[in-house]
C-alpha cells in the first residue's frame, strides 16, 4: 500500500484526507478489488478521511500503466498524476525494498532514463539533466494548474480560497522539488565522482534518483537551500511554509479560507494574509532558482523552452 499527499509529504493535519492506493506489480487478480475495498473500510473505521472525489486515490493501481504509459493517448491525467506523485510525494506502508513500491519506483525512473539518447554530456564527463523526466514534471505542474480552473468551474467555486492557497504553496513545492531532482543530476558533485568510476552511467544515476525521491519535497528544497541558497533564501521559504501549515492546521482558519470566493480575494483579510505568505514563498523560490549561478543556468536552459 502506498500513501500520497500530506501524509507522505510530512504535512499532515487533523483535517487532511488520506490519499492511498493499493499498488499491484504482478499478476492481475480479481481479489485485488476486495483487498482495496477492505482497506478502504478499515481506514474509514480508523477515523481517516476518504480521498477526494477525483478517483485518483482510494483504489487499485497497476504498475504496468505507470511504467509503460508515459506520454501518448493512454497516459491519462490519472496515470500521469499517480506516476509523478509516486516519484515526488509518496511512501510505502509496511513495504520493504523488495516490494512493489520500491520495484515500481525503480521501474518508472529507469523508464525515464531509457528514453534519453545520452545520459552524459558530450564535452565533459558530467550527467545531463534528464529532460524526459523534467518535461513530464513540468507537464504535470502545468496540467494541475489548468485542471484547477476546470474543477473550480465544474464545482462552482467550491473551496476556492483553500484550494488556490494550496496550489500556490504545497502544489508549487512539489514542482520545485521535481525541478531540483532533475537539476541535481547535473549539479551533484558526489554523483559526478561516482560517474567517473562507473562502467555504465545508468547505474549511479538511477541510484541517485532513487535516493533523492525518498526525501519529502520540503526536504529536497531544504537540501537545495543549504547547497545553493543563502540563509535569507532558506528562511524566506521555510518561514512562509511554516506560516502556511499553521494556517491550514487551524480548523477555523481553514474553514474560513474554504468559503472565500474569487470576488472576495482582494478584501478578505485572511485570504490576503494567505496571499502574502504565498508571495514570500514564491520570492524565496525565485531567489533559490535565479540568484545562484548554477541553478540559474539550468533554470534558464530547461525551465522555459
Amino acid at each position: 500500500m502506498v500513501v500520497f499527499g500530506s501524509l507522505a509529504r510530512d504535512e499532515f493535519t487533523d483535517e487532511s484526507d488520506l490519499d492511498w492506493t493499493l499498488l499491484v506489480d504482478g499478476q492481475a487478480d480479481s481479489d485485488h478489488l476486495h483487498t482495496a475495498q477492505a482497506i478502504r473500510k478499515k481506514l474509514t473505521l480508523a477515523g481517516f478521511k476518504e480521498p477526494g472525489r477525483t478517483g485518483v486515490f482510494g483504489n487499485t493501481t497497476f504498475s504496468h500503466g505507470l511504467i509503460h504509459l508515459i506520454g501518448g493517448e493512454d497516459d491519462t491525467n490519472r496515470n500521469t498524476t499517480q506516476r509523478i506523485l509516486l516519484l515526488l510525494e509518496s511512501r510505502g506502508i509496511n513495504s520493504g525494498e523488495a516490494d512493489a513500491y520500491a520495484r515500481v519506483l525503480t521501474g518508472v525512473l529507469n523508464r525515464y532514463l531509457e528514453e534519453e539518447a545520452n545520459l552524459v554530456q558530450a564535452q565533459a564527463k558530467l550527467y545531463k539533466v534528464p529532460r524526459f523526466l523534467l518535461n513530464d514534471i513540468v507537464r504535470f505542474w502545468r496540467t494541475m494548474a489548468v485542471d484547477f480552473a476546470s474543477k473550480q468551474r465544474a464545482r462552482e467555486g467550491e473551496d476556492w480560497g483553500l484550494k488556490v492557497s494550496k496550489l500556490a504553496m504545497s502544489r508549487k513545492l512539489i514542482f520545485a522539488s521535481g525541478l531540483l531532482v532533475c537539476f541535481g543530476c547535473s549539479l551533484d558533485t558526489e554523483l559526478s565522482k561516482e560517474l567517473a568510476k562507473a562502467e555504465k552511467p545508468l547505474v549511479p544515476l538511477l541510484g541517485y534518483l532513487r535516493s533523492l525521491v525518498r526525501f519529502t519535497p520540503l526536504e529536497l528544497v531544504a537540501r537545495a537551500s543549504l547547497s545553493h541558497g543563502n540563509a535569507s533564501t532558506g528562511r524566506k521559504i521555510f518561514d512562509s511554509y511554516d506560516q502556511f501549515l499553521a494556517m491550514i492546521a487551524d480548523s477555523e482558519k481553514r474553514d474560513h479560507l474554504k468559503n472565500v470566493r474569487p470576488e472576495e480575494s482582494r478584501t478578505d483579510s485572511l485570504f490576503l494574509e494567505a496571499r502574502e505568505i504565498s508571495r514570500n514563498f514564491q520570492s524565496g523560490l525565485e531567489e533559490l532558482f535565479f540568484d545562484n549561478a548554477d541553478l540559474y543556468k539550468l533554470t534558464r536552459k530547461y525551465g522555459v523552452f
Binding site: D10, E11, K42, I93, D242, Q243
Partner: peptide, 26 residues
C-alpha cells in the same frame, strides 16, 4: 525553528503508524 512544520511532521508520522497498524490488524 519551524513549529508548524514540526507539528505536521509529527502528525504525519503518527498517522502513518496508525495506517500501518490498521493494515497489520487486517
Amino acid at each position: 525553528e519551524w513549529t508548524a512544520i514540526r507539528e505536521a511532521r509529527r502528525r504525519a508520522e503518527q498517522a502513518r503508524e496508525k495506517v500501518s497498524k490498521s493494515l497489520t490488524e487486517m
